[in-house]
Deep mutational scan, measured.
Amino acid sequence: TFTSYQLEELEKVFQKTHYPDVYAREQLAMRTDLTEARVQVWFQNRRA
C-alpha cells in the first residue's frame, strides 16, 4: 500500500506523462522512498 503523499507524487507525474523514463522513475522513487521497480509497476497498473 502507498501513503497519500506517495500517491499524490505518483499521480502528479502520471498527469505529465504515462511513460516516465528511467531517470524520472528514479527521481520519483527517491522522493517517495519507494524502489524504482515499485514505481515502474505502479505506472504499468495505472495505465492498464
Rank of each mutant, 00 (worst) to 15 (best):
T1Q: 12
T1V: 11
T1A: 13
T1N: 12
T1S: 12
F2N: 02
F2K: 02
F2A: 02
F2G: 02
T3E: 06
T3L: 07
T3Q: 05
T3S: 10
S4E: 12
S4R: 13
S4P: 14
S4D: 11
S4N: 10
Y5Q: 08
Q6D: 02
Q6V: 05
L7I: 13
L7E: 08
E8L: 10
E8M: 13
E8T: 09
E8P: 13
E8Q: 11
E9T: 04
E9Q: 09
E9Y: 04
E9W: 06
L10Y: 00
L10R: 00
L10E: 02
L10H: 01
E11F: 04
E11G: 02
E11K: 03
E11Y: 05
K12M: 08
K12N: 06
V13R: 02
V13H: 06
F14H: 01
F14Y: 13
F14V: 01
Q15W: 06
Q15I: 12
Q15L: 12
Q15Y: 07
Q15N: 08
Q15M: 10
Q15D: 07
Q15A: 14
Q15C: 07
T17W: 07
T17A: 05
H18C: 09
H18D: 05
H18F: 10
H18S: 09
Y19D: 05
Y19G: 02
Y19H: 08
Y19W: 14
P20E: 01
P20D: 02
P20Q: 02
P20M: 04
D21H: 05
D21I: 02
D21L: 03
D21T: 08
V22M: 11
V22F: 14
V22G: 08
V22S: 12
V22P: 09
V22I: 13
Y23I: 11
Y23D: 09
A24Q: 14
A24M: 15
A24H: 07
A24R: 05
A24P: 15
R25W: 04
R25L: 15
R25Q: 05
R25K: 04
R25H: 03
E26S: 10
E26M: 14
E26G: 08
E26T: 13
Q27I: 10
Q27E: 14
Q27W: 10
Q27G: 06
Q27V: 09
Q27C: 08
L28E: 00
L28T: 02
L28R: 13
A29C: 10
A29M: 10
A29S: 07
A29D: 15
M30E: 09
M30T: 08
M30S: 10
R31T: 09
R31H: 05
T32H: 03
T32S: 04
T32C: 12
T32W: 14
T32E: 01
D33V: 05
D33K: 11
D33R: 10
L34R: 00
T35L: 05
T35R: 03
T35F: 03
T35N: 07
E36G: 05
E36A: 10
E36W: 06
A37R: 10
A37N: 08
A37E: 14
A37M: 10
A37K: 09
R38Y: 08
R38A: 15
R38I: 15
R38M: 15
R38L: 15
R38W: 11
V39T: 02
V39F: 01
V39P: 00
V39R: 00
Q40A: 14
Q40C: 13
Q40V: 10
Q40K: 15
V41I: 14
V41H: 13
V41F: 13
V41N: 14
W42V: 15
W42L: 01
W42D: 01
W42I: 03
F43P: 02
F43Q: 00
F43S: 00
Q44E: 15
Q44R: 08
Q44S: 11
N45K: 12
N45P: 01
N45D: 14
N45A: 12
N45S: 10
N45Y: 11
R46H: 03
R46L: 02
R46N: 03
R46Y: 02
R46V: 02
R46D: 01
R47N: 06
R47C: 06
R47L: 07
R47V: 07
A48D: 10
A48E: 11
